[in-house]
Design a protein around this nucleic acid. Structure first.
Lengths: 158, 158
DNA sequence: TATTGTTATACTCTATAACTATA
DNA sequence: TATAGTTATAGAGTATAACAATA
């Protein structure tokens, strides 16, 4: 990681905190995402996962098993990218594809026992990474942030 | 953009809203950033800019002109990526490099008159894009979100 | 005729190391 | 010896179009 070690709370460049950009919501989201995914990738690496593959694995191990199309929409990725991600996980025996009985075009991606076991450990790693990058916020603030982000990311429903 | 048109408030895949991942803060940040930068790139394209180049231009046109090193830290990018971004903007006559008199290794990136003019229009475009992706939130909620993100992204100071 | 998954391809972004000039 | 910027390169991520199977 040539960037920054996720443990440093942004040492330099504070001279630019007075810039207009520092108050730009989209910029702040982008920067926090860079920090967060760097921290998460570091924590997930020992498990052979990255944020992307972890997201797919987590959804595949959830209750309503997703189709690839649903994964693409939910993760805001192109369907062709899902193919590669599922291929990788399937190659490691963590998920497998099941043809949807109700629509044989669709394939459900479901976690294997081994995948579910790894997923549990990965969740802990992701949680630790979240602590890394949100150290500045308390529990209540994180809850507020979570609710606002959920509304912004998925709309008023939910 | 093969993804999603930024005007659609996430039509399908709502079946996955009950997943654990939908409550994962890092995931929400990542998804909102994907939406947001897609919307911003669409709005900035007519001006010949993208979110990255816009960020550099905006900082270069701000009051404390940044060095390339400061840009790298602030934007959470590698110094080598800044080189390419500044090259592009300099080629378009939007910014120019000035050797820092106090440290001749450093180069200040400052906006040209033409760059400042474009930056003003780009700011309006970026603001419109923000409305696109944060339509679900009111003004007060956006202010709360901004404050929490700023703390998370830059630490308690500020 | 439309949709799901797939493949292939090109392009952008990101990570890394080595080099230069200044300090 | 350390730092700012630069260059080059390889790898990961992203966008696009075309195709087969199914609806």
């Amino acid at each position: 990681m040539a960037r920054n070690d996720s443990t440093a709370a942004t040492p330099g460049a504070n001279r630019l905190l007075v810039s207009d950009l520092a108050q730009d919501l989209s910029f702040l989201v982008a920067r926090l995402r860079s920090q967060g995914s760097a921290a998460a990738n570091t924590r997930l690496a020992p498990l052979g996962l990255k944020v992307r593959s972890y997201s797919v694995l987590s959804l595949a191990c959830g209750d309503p098993a997703p189709t690839q199309r649903e994964l693409a929409e939910f993760l805001w990725l192109d369907p062709s990218q899902i193919v590669a991600l599922v291929d990788g996980l399937e190659g490691g025996g963590l998920v497998h594809r099941e043809t949807d009985p109700s629509d044989r075009r669709s394939k459900l991606v479901v976690g294997t026992p081994r995948g579910r076991e790894l997923c549990a450990r990965a969740r802990a790693a992701a949680s630790a990474a979240e602590d890394d990058s949100l150290r500045a916020l308390g529990a209540a603030e994180r809850a507020t942030l979570r609710a606002l982000l959920a509304r912004a990311a998925f709309g008023p429903e939910d």
